[in-house]
C-alpha cells in the first residue's frame, strides 16, 4: 500500500490550516488556496484511485476502456477548482480593501461590525 496520496492531502490541509489560523490577512487568504487544493485532492481521491487511464473513449470505441478512471469526481473537482479560484480572487480583493480601510493587515483589528466596547464588553443585562 502507498501513503503518497493521503500524505499529500494531509500536508495540504495542515499547511492550509496553519496559514488560515494566522492573524495576517494575506496569509489567511493564501491558506484558503492551499486548503482548497487539499480539499480538491480529497474529492478526487474519494472516487478511488484505481485504474489510471483518462475517462476518454478511444476513437472508434463506443465505451470507456476497462482501466479508465472514475469520471464523476473529476467533473466535480474541475468545476470546484474554477469556482474556488473565483472566490479566492474575491477573497484577495476583499482582504486588500479591508486592509486599506482598516489601515491594518491584522485580522483581529477588523472589528467594525463587532459590538462597541471591545472584548471586555458586557452585553446588556436584564433589569433587576
Amino acid at each position: 500500500m502507498s501513503l503518497i496520496v493521503p500524505l499529500a492531502i494531509a500536508l495540504c490541509v495542515a499547511a492550509g490550516v496553519y496559514l488560515t489560523l494566522s492573524r495576517d490577512l494575506f496569509r489567511m487568504v493564501l491558506g484558503l488556496a492551499v486548503l482548497g487544493s487539499g480539499v480538491n485532492l480529497l474529492l478526487f481521491a474519494s472516487g478511488r484511485l484505481g485504474p489510471l487511464a483518462p475517462p476518454i473513449m478511444e476513437a472508434g470505441a463506443d465505451a470507456l476502456a476497462a482501466g479508465a478512471a472514475n469520471p464523476l469526481p473529476q467533473a466535480l473537482v474541475l468545476t470546484a477548482i474554477v469556482i474556488g479560484f473565483a472566490l479566492l480572487c474575491f477573497g484577495l480583493v476583499l482582504a486588500a480593501r479591508l486592509a486599506n480601510m482598516a489601515r491594518s493587515e491584522d485580522a483581529d483589528a477588523l472589528r467594525a461590525t463587532e459590538p462597541p466596547g471591545g472584548e471586555g464588553h458586557k452585553p446588556a443585562v436584564l433589569e433587576p
Binding site: 483518462p54 476518454i56 473513449m57 474541475l78 468545476t79 474554477v82
Partner: peptide, 12 residues
Amino acid sequence: HNAPGGGFIAGL
C-alpha cells in the same frame, strides 16, 4: 467534448 479540454479550461 471528445478529448481533454472544454469551456472551463479554454476560459482559463
